[in-house]
Amino acid sequence: MLSGKHLKLLTDPINKNNPITVQVLGICSALAVTVKLEPAVVMSLSVIFVMSMSNVVISLLRNTIPKRIRIIVQLVVVAALVIIVDQFLKAYVFDVSKQLSVFVGLIITNCIIMGRLEAFALANSPGKSFLDGVGNGAGYGAILIIVAFFRELFGSGTIWNIQVIPQSFYDIGYANNGLMILPPMALVVVGIIIWVQRARNRELIEE
């Protein structure tokens, strides 16, 4: 269905050109919403939606936007999409929406989205831009979910709010790691992911 070149648009950002671990963009929200798995997944889906849709819209408009006001046009499009997502979350998953609070709104300022609009959507067809948006959103989401998985497992002993570390562990002296819940640990976990990724994929190592 997809040709090799198109497939690459989708899969490259997940590993070789990951927006978080390789381009080191969008770190702020990765720290903020990864305490638990559920908000991280919702956040990832929201970003995938906003990124792919805004990529398509900007790509369609790319020949009509005057160069000097393109950032404002991009912001208007992204903001409109973010408000749609925000209203949708408030209507259907109110609890998660409360947990994500301001960070849904802050998707507007997510560097990855602006970066992809500038670097890709302005120069490519809508179809390709859509794939690029989904790919980058998925690359962002993958890291978010990995980080949130470890932070929730070791910080709260749960996964998706279900207790997975049995009570017998706590009885013999195990304790949840409070540092995992604090934002600095998200940075350390992202750092470890970067370390593992570059150890496996040597061409990513900068000189």
């Binding site: 304790a175 790691n177 409070g178 540092l179 995992m180 604090l182």
Partner: peptide
């Protein structure tokens, strides 16, 4: 510092 922030009750 790790112990202090990770396991404050100990």
């Amino acid at each position: 510092a790790f112990l202090f922030f990770a396991y404050p009750s100990w």
